[in-house]
């Protein structure tokens, strides 16, 4: 029996993707680093490492600790600054076989707006992710995503700086992520990325000192998946804009948990460090999963494990 092809394409707040997989910011370089190991035409999009207005040296080493079911990192947003990136790195990404999403970070509302403005002016950039949730910079890094009012003001400023699809990346390190999500939506976000890393630390019991140069870091990988799935589930009930679910996704079954909780697409970060072929494999297995259930499109199952979730079609009053 020849089955009709399964449609894995998704639209994330105006960002049209052939595959529902976005490579997590900070985990995939510019994509060029992974080109010898992965087929970039079989992934949805690459989210670039977060950029700031001014150059940043990043945190002291060590920046990485492997943990039993994940990875602790404290890179500290090392980057040469948005102007250099736009001129030297982003300009070279025109030929990439998938869309490129820029990621903006900052320490004030104005900085975020300026970085968004530069990304907005770069034709190679298809959408902008607002990283208001980096746990690895000493002072204000994460405060934006931890405060509803600050979230609203930074998203408003970013919204004013770009017409490209704006994805706001939320932190799991909050009491009520749904409340923050609502503010981001109200302030003009087109989509939400849920979630960034979970704060954590590791201690060297021989030397009696923290293992990370920055002391605290962000935990990613399978260890955080249940935390992230719940965050998506709660956010999906609170907003109407699409969600990019992420946190510990390493196979199609993991991705399906997020999609069934209400994510339209998934982010894949740490799993690329195990095997860069994971995102392609997830796409193949998602297609098999849908085909085996006689489903035609990934969009049909978004939020289906979430009783409080209304699909975009249902919202428009069209059950099709």
């Amino acid at each position: 029996m020849v089955r009709p092809p399964v449609d894995l394409s998704v639209n994330v707040g105006g960002l049209a993707l052939r595959y529902p997989t976005l490579m997590g910011s900070g985990c995939y370089g510019t994509g060029a680093e992974f080109a010898p190991f992965a087929d970039l035409s079989r992934i949805g999009a690459i989210v670039l490492k977060s950029a700031t207005l001014a150059p940043r040296l990043g945190n002291a080493m060590p920046r990485l600790v492997h943990t039993p079911a994940g990875l602790l990192n404290a890179i500290g947003l090392q980057n040469p600054g948005i102007d250099w990136l736009v001129e030297h790195e982003i300009a070279a990404l025109g030929g990439m076989p998938c869309p490129i999403v820029g990621s903006a970070a900052g320490f004030s509302v104005d900085e975020y707006a300026q970085v968004c403005g530069r990304l907005d002016a770069s034709p190679e950039i298809s959408a902008i992710e607002l990283n208001i949730s980096c746990p690895n910079v000493a002072s204000e890094g994460e405060t934006f995503a931890c405060d509803a009012n600050l979230t609203a003001s930074v998203v408003r400023a970013a919204r004013a700086a770009t017409r490209k699809p704006l994805i706001v990346k939320l932190s799991p390190n909050v009491t009520d992520i749904a409340a923050i999500a609502r503010e981001a939506e109200r302030a003009g976000a087109d989509a939400l990325a849920v979630v960034n890393t979970v704060r954590g630390m590791a201690i060297d019991v021989e030397r009696w000192e923290p293992r990370l140069g920055n002391v605290a870091g962000g935990l990613s990988g399978p260890a955080i998946r249940p935390i992230a799935v719940l965050a998506v589930y709660e956010v999906a009930r609170a907003v109407r804009i699409p969600i990019v679910g992420q946190g510990g996704i390493a196979n199609a079954s993991d991705a399906l948990e997020f999609i069934l909780a209400g994510a339209s697409a998934v982010g894949i970060g740490t799993a690329n460090f195990l095997d860069p072929r994971v995102p392609e494999r997830i796409a193949v297995e998602l297609a098999e999963y849908l085909a085996s259930r006689n489903l035609r499109a990934i969009s049909e199952i978004v939020g289906r494990a979430n009783a409080g979730f209304a699909t975009p079609e249902q919202r428009e009053g069209d059950a099709g």
Binding site: C27, F37, G58, R63, N73, P80
Partner: peptide, 27 residues
């Protein structure tokens, strides 16, 4: 300690002199 091992995550850095031939593309 590496995470990606391919230059994608910036988790493995070491300071070099600016003029190093190994960092020609750095600002």
């Amino acid at each position: 300690t590496f995470a990606c091992g391919v230059g994608g995550c910036w988790g493995c850095v070491v300071p070099l002199v600016q003029e190093s031939a190994q960092a020609p593309h750095f600002p």
